[in-house]
């Protein structure tokens, strides 16, 4: 293997960020290899969502460095555009475009950013929506879909750009309990297909069963990290033990 291939896909080095006087990220370092499924857990306010959002430049950081597949995360519009072609993101609130159908939601970025023609757009939309089990909903508007279906469209939309890594920011937290599983199943399939995933999640069972790496954040730091099954069975710190206990 060449050195380039052994290099981690996502390299996060000593990231610090403050909101005013409040330091939310206090020197975070993390490597994510190709094919990893990283589950980031922690209490609200521990900085986990902020960390995730720095990876595709939605949040800036004060010091440290991040690179994805060799592309550094820096502020300029051109650099961000190059970065975001490699990094997909799925949000808690879905954020589908309400004026576009499911197929148009999925095909928008290929059309605008990659310059795909009409035929290619239609093919991408169909392929991606079939992948998330919504091949029959191409013409539906977001308002005509359930929350679980909307979130699956959002996943298809992110996949349409063939990202190297997919960021998932509490993607089941806004869903009714009975709709959570259909979304998790899609994510699980992606993980099995070898997609690199970084998830901020409250689904502990999912983190344990599907994750290849667990990161527990506490007060803006990586408090503990390692193999999910090991850590859940035997937390190394009282904070993680308490957190796992409180979630149940």
């Amino acid at each position: 293997m060449s050195p380039a291939e052994t290099r981690p896909l996502v390299e996060i080095k000593d990231i610090r960020k403050s909101f005013g006087p409040l330091e939310v990220l206090k020197g975070i370092s993390m490597d994510v290899a190709q094919g990893d499924v990283v589950a980031i857990i922690g209490r609200s306010g521990s900085g986990k969502s902020t960390l995730l959002r720095t990876i595709n430049g939605l949040e800036t950081f004060d010091s440290g460095s991040i690179s994805v597949d060799g592309t550094p995360v820096i502020g300029g519009e051109k650099e961000l555009k190059a970065l975001r072609r490699k990094v997909g993101m799925v949000f808690q609130q879905f954020n589908l475009f309400p004026h576009l159908t499911a197929a148009e939601n999925v095909a928008l970025a290929p059309k605008v950013v990659l310059g795909a023609g009409a035929k290619e757009q239609a093919e991408t939309a169909r392929e991606m929506l079939e992948k998330v089990g919504l091949g029959d909903k191409l013409g539906n508007y977001p308002s005509q879909l359930s929350g679980g279906q909307q979130q699956r469209v959002a996943i298809a939309r992110a996949l349409a750009m063939h990202p190297k890594v997919l960021l998932c920011d509490e993607i089941t937290s806004a869903l009714d309990p009975e709709l959570v599983n259909e979304v998790l199943r899609v994510v699980e399939t992606l993980a099995k297909d070898g997609m690199t995933l970084i998830l901020v999640t409250h689904e502990m069972r999912f983190a344990r069963d599907v994750g290849s790496k667990l990161v527990f954040m506490h007060h803006g730091k990586v408090h503990e990290e390692g193999d999910p099954k090991t850590l859940f069975a035997k937390p190394g710190t009282p904070e993680l033990a308490q957190f796992v206990g409180s979630i149940g």
Partner: peptide, 24 residues
């Protein structure tokens, strides 16, 4: 969220306005 989602899809400001924000 509409800005964030379209940013994440690598649309630039003018593209975001044209395809996502202004139609709404």
């Amino acid at each position: 969220g509409q800005w964030e989602a379209s940013s994440s899809l690598a649309l630039n400001y003018v593209e975001q306005m044209r395809y996502v924000i202004l139609p709404q």
